[in-house]
Amino acid sequence: MKWLIFGAYGYSGALIAREAKARGLTPVLAGRNPDRLRPLADELGLDWRAFALDRPDDLDGGLEGIGLVLHCAGPFSRTSAPMIEACLRNGAHYLDITGEIDVFEHAHAQANRARLADVVLCPGVGFDVIPTDCVARVLADELPDATHLLLGFDAASGLSPGTAKTAAESAGYGGRIRRDGRLVAVPLGHAPRRIDFGRGATTAMTIPWGDVATAYYSTGIPNIAVYVPASRRAIAAAKIADYLRPLLRTGAVRAMLTGLAERYVTGPDLAARERGSTYVWGEARNSLGEVRTARVKTASGYAVTVTGSLAVVQHLLETSVAGGSYTPSLLLGPRFLETLPGTDGPIVVSDQSI
């Protein structure tokens, strides 16, 4: 099966392309800018195709003969829908490395179309959301009648330009959680609490992470929130910023913030990626007060994105999978994270029932 990386010259796309070549894989490199594609393709000795996303005919031509797309061009809120449509039209599996809630929701809404087209749709095959999605599934297996699920991670790997632009784009829209099966908007800095992610208790706050979409489809648990460490000062700043959300949503401010991200954010270097690690945590609770807590330490976020996305690619290249909408843990199982380099042992679950 011939496969393609779209956004191959971006920070994450280039990391994935180089690792794919090192593994003996031969993706077609693709993106909108031929002047940025050609040098990378020449360096790696790979074929390349330049095409944009705003013309269906161009997309269809770009996907001619392609059986799988790994989409790495963000912000995915702008780019994923046309690529998903093209994959459904052309019978190509669709993967991406997003963490954006609305992208997951859109992909899930195409589940019936994907089944009819025999196309796999599986967004979020990077750090967003492989580690937390696997922790969610493990906890759901341990406590099948769970009604509430909290997830979180403690990472310090830095931001890529694409991630920074996505954060700038979404800054004005506040937080989100899942409550009684529905996505609910909440203020920035919502519901702070103390959490031990794996290296001691710290204050934390909720963020609008992709698991409030994906973990619901992976587990069926109706109440979900995602946490990251945040100092009391950071939580206070988030609550102040919540009042500025109308301003942050304006086109001029969003353009300024994304421009600053493009200009000044370069992404972590190799040393930072290799020495970085991530502590992932989850807590499930049922109506009887029974609680299960899970923890695991894994590699840095960008390392997980590279190895995780390529593991999913290789699985689909080697395995026949029925079309439909998937999360990473539904596609490769709840212990998938444990197979990735840098994961330090199994996901450990403890009973902390009241």
Rank of each mutant, 00 (worst) to 15 (best):
T305C: 06
A50E: 04
E169Q: 15
L40C: 03
S170Q: 11
A294I: 00
A73N: 06
K165V: 12
A30K: 13
G174L: 12
L248E: 03
S157D: 15
E142I: 00
A252G: 14
A107L: 07
A52D: 10
L332S: 08
D211S: 04
L316K: 02
P39D: 12
I130K: 05
E318L: 08
L257R: 08
G62R: 02
G24I: 07
M256S: 15
A167K: 11
Y9H: 14
W281Q: 00
A303E: 12
T339A: 14
V296H: 05
G31R: 08
G65H: 01
V186P: 05
L310E: 10
A322L: 14
S329T: 11
L270S: 12
A168F: 10
N112V: 10
L25R: 05
P131I: 02
I207Q: 00
W3V: 14
V349E: 12
L337K: 06
K21L: 08
M1V: 02
P346N: 13
L310V: 15
G172H: 04
D344R: 14
V226N: 02
I195P: 05
I66V: 09
L288E: 03
Y217S: 03
N33L: 00
G62A: 08
V186K: 07
A50R: 02
F336H: 13
E85G: 07
A30I: 10
P334H: 15
K297H: 09
L159G: 08
P328E: 14
V296M: 04
R263F: 10
A238K: 06
E100T: 06
T166L: 11
G172L: 08
G124L: 03
M83P: 06
E338W: 12
V119M: 08
P82S: 13
A14R: 15
G45N: 05
A164W: 14
A261R: 13
S277A: 12
T79L: 09
A140L: 11
A272D: 06
T166S: 15
A238V: 07
